[in-house]
């Protein structure tokens, strides 16, 4: 079976007054059918930019794709013209934004917004702004019913009343559910969610996670989740890509990755979490390098605790160690051999 999404050696640059910033370098990510995949890393390491490039929402200029392919259902998005690409993305992808507080329009009711999307999906994007007004009442009822079904599918109580409520009347968790309902409305093949629960409380977060897992399993939707929370990645995703400074530094099945991280950065991330088992936790010194300074060596070199001479000038590439694990580090072959 072909992957739903396959990003191959994607390199993305931002052209700014200060110079050209290479914000993604040879990033390869794949999401299989029905699979959930996480992109994790610190702020500013390119997780969101990767997802936005896939969605094609980055303004260009300054963004410029300098190389690579983005295959959606086996078709190269970058080889298409703008209209084909837009159509493809609209049909196959859905996006759940991070902040449920600002992603719903405050001046329309939840029902209006949800029904607009359903209607717009039906019209395949060819639709005027006030299209709901010129519909027959039978059609309107069927759209309303569809909106209700969607809200029920995300376990919203009193869906009927909810349709006439404004976003400000809902709590954060409920708004996030509405956004998930909207994302599911077009029966997408892949949901891209950018920090879907960061703005929520832990108990609400848990219920949203359960919902996402349930919905993606039931309708066989794949998921690409962007998060900085490794615990969340563990609950939600089969596989995880760890990103650092615009490159993928390590990838494996989430459990295996967290149990036995090999790249010093992944080790640092895992080691920085205060654990309940009482092991010592330490952070990583320093910060993400400036994208303007492109050294030829390992991007993690300045912060790495086990750096060696080879790391200064030679940029490691992602090498496959065994079945699922790939690591971009010069020092891993020896370290990794004992668990290969």
């Amino acid at each position: 079976m072909t992957d739903v999404l396959r990003v191959d050696n994607l390199t993305l640059q931002f052209e700014t007054i200060d110079g050209v910033l290479t914000v993604l370098e040879n990033v390869s990510v794949s999401v299989g059918p029905g699979e959930c995949v996480a992109l994790v890393g610190e702020t500013g390491c390119g997780k969101s930019v990767t997802s936005k490039t896939v969605l094609g929402v980055l303004p260009s200029p300054p963004a410029r794709i300098a190389g690579g392919h983005i295959l959606l259902d086996g078709q190269d998005l970058l080889a298409m013209n703008a209209r084909e690409r837009k159509g493809m993305v609209q049909n196959r992808l859905a996006y759940v934004p991070q902040d449920p507080m600002t992603s719903l329009n405050p001046v329309f009711t939840v029902g209006q917004q949800l029904m607009d999307i359903i209607r717009w999906r039906k019209a395949k994007g060819r639709l005027g702004r006030f299209a709901l007004d010129n519909l027959s009442s039978a059609k309107r009822r069927s759209i309303r019913q569809e909106a209700l079904d969607l809200l029920n599918s995300v376990h919203m109580p009193d869906a009927d009343q909810l349709l006439s409520k404004y976003p400000y009347e809902l709590s954060g968790g409920m708004r996030q559910r509405v956004l998930i309902a909207m994302a599911l409305s077009g029966r997408p093949a892949l949901i891209v969610a950018d920090e879907p629960t960061t703005a929520l409380d832990v108990t609400v977060q848990k219920s949203i996670l359960r919902l996402l897992i349930e919905r993606t399993r039931m309708s066989n939707v794949s998921g690409l989740y962007i998060t900085h929370n490794l615990g969340l990645a563990r609950e939600l995703c089969h596989r995880t890509y760890v990103m650092y400074a615009g490159t993928v530094v390590e990838t494996d099945e989430t459990d295996a990755l967290l149990r036995n991280p090999l790249h010093p950065y992944t080790k640092g991330l895992v080691g920085a979490i205060p654990k309940l088992t009482g092991e010592a936790y330490t952070g990583i010194d320093g910060q993400i390098p400036d994208y303007l300074e492109r050294s030829s060596g390992c991007r993690f070199y300045p912060r790495c605790s086990r750096r060696q001479e080879i790391c200064i000038n030679d940029r490691p590439t992602l090498r496959s160690l065994h079945k699922t694990r790939s690591v971009a580090c010069h020092l891993v072959s020896e370290m990794g051999s004992d668990n290969g």
Binding site: V202, T203, V204, Q205, K206, S207, R210, N229, L230, G231, L232, R234, E235, L258, R259, V270, I273, K275, L276, T277
Partner: peptide
């Protein structure tokens, strides 16, 4: 029970999952 943890050992220390 809702604490997102990263290992099984940690999960074992927490009460069984309750979703509110």
């Amino acid at each position: 029970s809702a604490i997102p943890v990263i290992t099984e050992e940690e999960r074992a220390l927490l009460p069984p999952e309750i979703i509110l």
